[in-house]
Design a binder for these strands. Structure first.
Lengths: 145, 145
DNA sequence: TTGGATGCAAAGCCTTTGCATACCT
DNA sequence: AGGTATGCAAAGGCTTTGCATCCAA
């Protein structure tokens, strides 16, 4: 994990962004909760545990910054707030999908990719240059059924 | 279209909801703009053209009601507001996906469904009972490339 | 007639912005 | 030292809620 962090720090410095303790902490929190799809507020609370003086606005600004670097990217589930996942700027980004339980709200990640064929067909039919995709599968999870 | 509307009205009345002119108008606006993924505010403006006294809160409440009846369902794209599509309570709901242009923001619907195989596999591996899915494909549309 | 539906305005969330201060480089 | 980053508080969007009035059944 330290590798990933120093890599990210290098990228920030290359573009003349400063390394502050808050930025590093936000990054660590995101990495330590990789699979949790944290919201800004959740990141804020986790950061506050280690650095109580941190402001919410800083967390928002940091998340936006990281988003620009593709360290993370945001996704809306159905509670109307942005949630964040690690992105291609930090590590090899694997294609993955989300299983969302409509009872308990838990989110399971699935690392499949069977969509290439569909993407190709769609590209041709609509002259649409595919960059990325996002698949959410709704249903009932193991625990809730 | 009148068939669909009277069918919907019947369903409302069966559950003792009143048919108001506002509710009917919202329904018509949704049907007339089936493929546009309107937001609440957009529905509101379209309704106001025909009934200027309508309040925004009524539109929100009506959309929530229609959502409970599965006349429509909401989906978040990336502008952070709910947008609505017709749902299974109104008509045979076809599986469809969205092509979202990251330049101009236009949304194209695609009526493919190649996801059954993936759904089956995922169901088994994770003991997850699939109800529905949502696929967004991001890229550059014909006009923007 | 009467309880649900409406319109208006206020309040609630989440997120962004302004500004004075703090702190990386 | 200088300018970016921060924290706080205020303001901005979108959505929901409270309340008096209205209206479909």
């Amino acid at each position: 994990m330290e590798d990933i962090i120093s890599n990210a720090i290098d990228k920030l410095k290359q573009k003349e962004y400063k390394l502050t303790s808050q930025r590093e902490l936000v990054l660590r929190v995101l990495l330590e909760n990789e699979d949790k799809h944290l919201s800004a507020e959740e990141v804020y609370h986790l950061v506050k545990e280690k650095a109580p003086d941190t402001g919410l606005a800083t967390v928002y600004r940091t998340l936006e910054l990281f988003n620009e670097f593709d360290f993370i990217h945001s996704i809306y589930f159905d509670d109307g707030r942005k949630r964040y996942e690690l992105g291609s700027g930090l590590m090899k980004s694997h294609q993955h999908h989300h299983l969302i339980c409509t009872k308990c709200g838990s989110i399971i990640e699935v690392n499949e990719d069977l969509l290439d064929e569909l993407e190709n067909r769609v590209s041709q039919q609509h002259e649409f240059k595919v960059i990325n995709h996002q698949l959410k599968i709704f249903g009932i999870c193991k625990n809730c059924s």
